[in-house]
Protein backbone atom coordinates (compact mmCIF):
# COMPACT_ATOMS: atom_id res chain seq x y z
CA UNK A 1 0.00 0.00 0.00
CA UNK A 2 1.36 3.48 -0.77
CA UNK A 3 2.77 5.22 2.29
CA UNK A 4 1.65 8.82 1.69
CA UNK A 5 -1.70 10.09 2.93
CA UNK A 6 -3.98 12.19 0.77
CA UNK A 7 -5.52 15.15 2.51
CA UNK A 8 -8.93 16.58 1.69
CA UNK A 9 -10.57 19.58 3.31
CA UNK A 10 -14.34 19.98 3.18
CA UNK A 11 -16.08 23.13 4.33
CA UNK A 12 -19.62 22.94 5.70
CA UNK A 13 -22.38 25.49 5.38
CA UNK A 14 -23.59 27.64 8.26
CA UNK A 15 -25.61 24.78 9.69
CA UNK A 16 -22.69 22.37 9.77
CA UNK A 17 -23.96 20.49 6.69
CA UNK A 18 -21.77 19.34 3.83
CA UNK A 19 -22.35 20.34 0.23
CA UNK A 20 -22.98 17.10 -1.75
CA UNK A 21 -21.26 18.37 -4.91
CA UNK A 22 -18.19 19.39 -2.91
CA UNK A 23 -18.09 15.95 -1.25
CA UNK A 24 -18.55 14.17 -4.57
CA UNK A 25 -15.80 16.08 -6.32
CA UNK A 26 -13.36 15.76 -3.42
CA UNK A 27 -13.79 12.02 -3.01
CA UNK A 28 -14.07 11.23 -6.71
CA UNK A 29 -10.86 13.16 -7.41
CA UNK A 30 -9.13 10.53 -5.27
CA UNK A 31 -10.80 7.61 -7.04
CA UNK A 32 -10.96 8.58 -10.70
CA UNK A 33 -10.27 12.23 -11.57
CA UNK A 34 -12.06 11.73 -14.92
CA UNK A 35 -15.36 11.57 -13.09
CA UNK A 36 -15.24 14.90 -11.25
CA UNK A 37 -17.92 17.43 -12.22
CA UNK A 38 -15.68 19.58 -14.37
CA UNK A 39 -14.24 16.63 -16.34
CA UNK A 40 -17.39 14.69 -17.27
CA UNK A 41 -18.49 17.08 -20.06
CA UNK A 42 -15.08 16.62 -21.73
CA UNK A 43 -15.19 12.81 -21.80
CA UNK A 44 -17.03 12.37 -25.09
CA UNK A 45 -14.53 14.49 -26.92
CA UNK A 46 -11.62 12.88 -25.15
CA UNK A 47 -12.66 9.33 -26.09
CA UNK A 48 -13.92 10.06 -29.59
CA UNK A 49 -11.95 7.36 -31.39
CA UNK A 50 -11.98 4.62 -28.81
CA UNK A 51 -12.72 1.04 -29.77
CA UNK A 52 -15.76 -0.81 -28.44
CA UNK A 53 -13.50 -2.90 -26.24
CA UNK A 54 -11.81 0.17 -24.77
CA UNK A 55 -15.20 1.69 -24.27
CA UNK A 56 -16.41 -1.33 -22.37
CA UNK A 57 -13.29 -1.31 -20.28
CA UNK A 58 -13.87 2.34 -19.45
CA UNK A 59 -17.48 1.63 -18.54
CA UNK A 60 -16.27 -1.06 -16.15
CA UNK A 61 -13.74 1.32 -14.64
CA UNK A 62 -16.44 3.93 -14.05
CA UNK A 63 -18.73 1.36 -12.52
CA UNK A 64 -16.03 0.28 -10.14
CA UNK A 65 -15.26 3.91 -9.33
CA UNK A 66 -18.85 4.61 -8.33
CA UNK A 67 -18.85 1.46 -6.21
CA UNK A 68 -15.76 2.75 -4.42
CA UNK A 69 -17.33 6.16 -4.05
CA UNK A 70 -20.36 4.68 -2.31
CA UNK A 71 -18.14 2.85 0.12
CA UNK A 72 -15.98 5.92 0.82
CA UNK A 73 -19.04 8.09 1.33
CA UNK A 74 -20.38 5.62 3.88
CA UNK A 75 -17.06 5.61 5.72
CA UNK A 76 -16.90 9.38 5.70
CA UNK A 77 -20.39 9.92 7.07
CA UNK A 78 -19.90 7.20 9.65
CA UNK A 79 -16.64 8.86 10.73
CA UNK A 80 -18.38 12.21 11.05
CA UNK A 81 -21.18 10.68 13.11
CA UNK A 82 -18.64 9.00 15.41
CA UNK A 83 -16.73 12.23 15.80
CA UNK A 84 -19.87 14.19 16.66
CA UNK A 85 -20.94 11.58 19.22
CA UNK A 86 -17.50 11.61 20.88
CA UNK A 87 -17.47 15.36 20.89
CA UNK A 88 -20.89 15.57 22.53
CA UNK A 89 -19.85 13.09 25.20
CA UNK A 90 -16.66 15.11 25.79
CA UNK A 91 -18.61 18.36 26.04
CA UNK A 92 -21.01 16.82 28.55
CA UNK A 93 -18.18 15.41 30.67
CA UNK A 94 -16.38 18.74 30.57
CA UNK A 95 -19.54 20.64 31.57
CA UNK A 96 -20.01 18.23 34.45
CA UNK A 97 -16.40 18.69 35.57
CA UNK A 98 -16.79 22.48 35.35
CA UNK A 99 -19.92 22.31 37.45
CA UNK A 100 -18.10 20.20 40.05
CA UNK A 101 -15.21 22.66 40.09
CA UNK A 102 -17.63 25.56 40.58
CA UNK A 103 -19.29 23.75 43.47
CA UNK A 104 -15.93 23.09 45.11
CA UNK A 105 -14.92 26.74 44.68
CA UNK A 106 -18.22 27.85 46.22
CA UNK A 107 -17.67 25.56 49.20
CA UNK A 108 -14.14 26.83 49.67
CA UNK A 109 -15.37 30.42 49.50
CA UNK A 110 -17.97 29.71 52.15
CA UNK A 111 -15.34 28.11 54.33
CA UNK A 112 -13.06 31.14 53.99
CA UNK A 113 -15.89 33.45 54.90
CA UNK A 114 -16.61 31.30 57.89
CA UNK A 115 -13.06 31.36 59.23
CA UNK A 116 -12.77 35.09 58.72
Amino acid sequence: MPEAISNITLVTDGNGKLDPVQVYDALMAQIDPELVTSEIPTLQEKYKGESSEQRKERGERYKKAYGQYESMLAQLTEGISDHTRTQRRGALASAEADSRKEEAAELEKMETLFIQ
Binding site: M1, P2, I5, N7, G16, Q68, Q75, G79, I80, Q87
Partner: peptide, 25 residues
Protein backbone atom coordinates in the same frame (compact mmCIF):
# COMPACT_ATOMS: atom_id res chain seq x y z
CA UNK B 1 -25.42 12.90 9.19
CA UNK B 2 -25.21 15.06 12.33
CA UNK B 3 -24.20 18.69 11.77
CA UNK B 4 -20.49 19.35 12.23
CA UNK B 5 -19.90 22.01 14.87
CA UNK B 6 -16.13 21.69 15.30
CA UNK B 7 -13.41 20.64 12.87
CA UNK B 8 -13.48 16.87 12.42
CA UNK B 9 -10.90 14.65 10.77
CA UNK B 10 -11.95 11.29 9.35
CA UNK B 11 -9.50 8.80 7.89
CA UNK B 12 -10.72 6.64 5.06
CA UNK B 13 -8.47 3.57 4.73
CA UNK B 14 -6.79 3.22 1.35
CA UNK B 15 -6.65 0.23 -0.95
CA UNK B 16 -3.62 -1.65 -2.25
CA UNK B 17 -2.94 0.98 -4.87
CA UNK B 18 -4.45 4.06 -3.18
CA UNK B 19 -3.22 5.77 0.00
CA UNK B 20 -5.30 6.48 3.09
CA UNK B 21 -7.34 9.66 2.80
CA UNK B 22 -7.55 12.12 5.70
CA UNK B 23 -10.71 14.18 5.30
CA UNK B 24 -10.88 17.34 7.40
CA UNK B 25 -14.39 18.73 7.76
Amino acid sequence: TPAVQETATVTIPGTKDKPDIAVTV
